[in-house]
Each structure stands twice: as structure tokens, then as C-alpha cells.
Amino acid sequence: MTSNTLPDYATLSDTLNSSSLSVNPAELHGLLVGMLSGGLNPTDDTWKSLLFDYTNEGMGWPINALEQAQRVFDATKKELMSSSFELSLLLPAELSKASLLEVADSFSDWVNHFISGLGLADAKLRKASQEVKESLSDLEEIARLGIDEEDDLEEQAQLLEQVMDHAKICVLTIHAELGKKPAQGEGQDKKPTIH
């Protein structure tokens, strides 16, 4: 049985690096969230072949790395299918522990790969609502943002938190319209029917 929580960033990073995969945890998570938000069927393994093509020239991943990717996929699917309207971002440790620049770079990687994930899932963006198009436009702008080391880093950390919150809202807006919805009872605790 797999865990339905995202793995630790540093542990997953070590696994991906030792497997010689040219993707970091933030990129992996952004890609998977993008694919699921773009309409990829969450109940089959289509995501694996897309992931292999995008990250490893079509070659499969080593078992340990694939198990970790499965864990990321399962946790992401569970979160997106819930009714809580929350989204976790797989980024380096909290801002207080990791350097602000590292977190900002990873966040940019996450957003860029989310957008790529939408493309891999063949999201129907041309037919999308104006809200979805605006959300995607905001994400494209966010992906270009950076941290200026000359400015007040504490203030920039606060701004980064606000931008991350806005990005989550954009992602959830896109998923709400384009992502697959859970079948009735799926993702919920099933209760026996009494006859």
C-alpha cells in the first residue's frame, strides 16, 4: 500500500539524482499536477509513459524512483479529488530552513512544469473559460518572476508566499474546469449500504 502524502523533498531529490533522472521533485510534482489538471485520467497509468517520454527519452524509470513518483501521483490525485480545495506544493523545506532563492527557483520549476503537464495531457485550453485562460496567463507570468538579492529578503519571502497562494488558486481553477472529476463515491470513504 502506498502512502497518500507527498514524500520529503530532499529524500525524493536524492532518489531522482541517484537514478540519473534529470528532473527534480518540484518539476515532477508540477508535471503531475499539470497532467491531472489538464484532464488526464487519474485511474490509469497513462501518466507513466508521458513521464518517461518527457523526462527520460521514453525509457522507464528505476523501480525505486518510479515507486516515489507513484507516491507523488497518488497523493496529488487524492488531494485534487478531495473537496477541500487545497493544494500542496512539493518544494524544498519551509522558507525558514531553505534559502529563499532555492525555494523561489523550485517554485518557478514547479509552475513551468505544471504548464508543461497541461500540454502533455492535451488540455483543451482553447475552449476553456475566460477564468481558466486568465489563470494560465497568471501562471505564465509567475513562472518568470525571480528574487532580487539586493532587496529586503524578508519582504520578498512574504511576497513569495502570496504569489504561491495565488498560484494554487490558479491551479485549482484550472483543475476544477479541465480535470477529471471523481466518480460518485471515489475518493470518499465507502460506507456499506444497509438493505
Rank of each mutant, 00 (worst) to 15 (best):
1 M>W: 05
2 T>N: 13
2 T>K: 10
6 L>S: 09
6 L>K: 06
7 P>M: 06
8 D>C: 11
11 T>G: 08
13 S>F: 13
14 D>W: 02
15 T>R: 01
15 T>D: 03
18 S>R: 12
19 S>Y: 06
20 S>L: 15
26 A>H: 04
27 E>K: 02
30 G>V: 06
31 L>D: 06
31 L>C: 14
32 L>V: 10
34 G>F: 02
38 G>I: 04
46 T>F: 06
46 T>Y: 07
48 K>M: 14
49 S>Q: 14
50 L>T: 01
52 F>H: 08
53 D>E: 15
56 N>M: 06
57 E>G: 01
58 G>A: 09
60 G>S: 15
61 W>I: 15
65 A>T: 00
65 A>M: 11
65 A>C: 03
67 E>I: 09
68 Q>I: 02
70 Q>A: 14
71 R>Y: 00
73 F>E: 11
73 F>W: 02
73 F>T: 09
74 D>I: 08
77 K>V: 08
79 E>R: 01
82 S>Q: 05
82 S>H: 04
83 S>D: 14
84 S>F: 13
85 F>W: 09
86 E>C: 07
86 E>N: 10
88 S>Y: 10
89 L>K: 02
90 L>W: 07
90 L>R: 01
95 L>C: 03
96 S>M: 14
97 K>C: 07
98 A>P: 08
99 S>L: 10
102 E>H: 05
105 D>S: 06
105 D>E: 15
112 N>K: 14
114 F>G: 05
115 I>E: 00
118 L>F: 05
118 L>Q: 04
120 L>D: 02
126 R>T: 14
128 A>Q: 00
129 S>W: 04
129 S>L: 09
132 V>D: 09
138 D>H: 13
144 R>W: 09
145 L>D: 14
147 I>P: 02
148 D>P: 07
148 D>L: 03
149 E>C: 07
149 E>L: 14
150 E>A: 12
151 D>S: 08
153 L>F: 05
154 E>H: 00
154 E>Y: 02
154 E>I: 00
155 E>I: 04
156 Q>D: 06
157 A>K: 05
166 H>K: 14
170 C>Q: 10
172 L>V: 07
172 L>G: 02
176 A>M: 07
178 L>G: 08
178 L>R: 00
179 G>K: 01
181 K>W: 05
182 P>I: 01
182 P>W: 06
183 A>N: 08
185 G>Q: 03
188 Q>W: 03
193 T>K: 13
